[in-house]
Simulated assay, not measured.
Amino acid sequence: MVTLVTGDIAALSAPDVVARWLPASVSAAAPDGPRRQPFLAGRVMLAAHCPDESLQALTYNHHGKPAFTRPGAPFFNISHSGNEIVLAIDTFAPVGVDIEIERPRKTWPRIAQDYFGAAELQRLKALPETEQLCAFWHGWTLREAVLKQRGGSVWDMAALDVSTSALNAHNLYTRWHHQHPCVIAVCAAHPFDLAVVTMTRA
Rank of each mutant, 00 (worst) to 15 (best):
L40C: 01
N77Y: 02
Q149K: 10
D98W: 02
I101F: 05
A145Q: 04
P191M: 09
Q122A: 04
F75V: 13
P104K: 10
I99A: 07
R20N: 08
L58P: 13
P94Y: 09
A67Y: 14
A88P: 12
F76W: 07
V95T: 10
R110F: 13
H180S: 03
P34I: 14
P128Q: 10
I89S: 13
V146T: 02
H80C: 10
D52I: 12
V162S: 09
A11H: 03
F39H: 02
S27G: 06
G64E: 04
H170M: 03
A11V: 11
F76I: 10
V18R: 07
T59A: 11
H49F: 14
A29I: 03
N61K: 13
A29L: 06
F39K: 02
H180A: 04
A48D: 10
R143Q: 15
D161M: 05
V186H: 06
P191I: 15
T91E: 13
N61D: 11
P15R: 05
A169Q: 00
W155K: 11
A11E: 12
P71V: 13
A135V: 05
R201Q: 08
V97G: 02
P181E: 06
A119M: 11
I85Y: 03
Q149P: 02
Q149S: 05
Q122P: 02
V97S: 00
T174C: 01
L55T: 02
V18G: 07
V197D: 12
A189P: 05
V146D: 00
G139T: 09
T164M: 03
R43D: 08
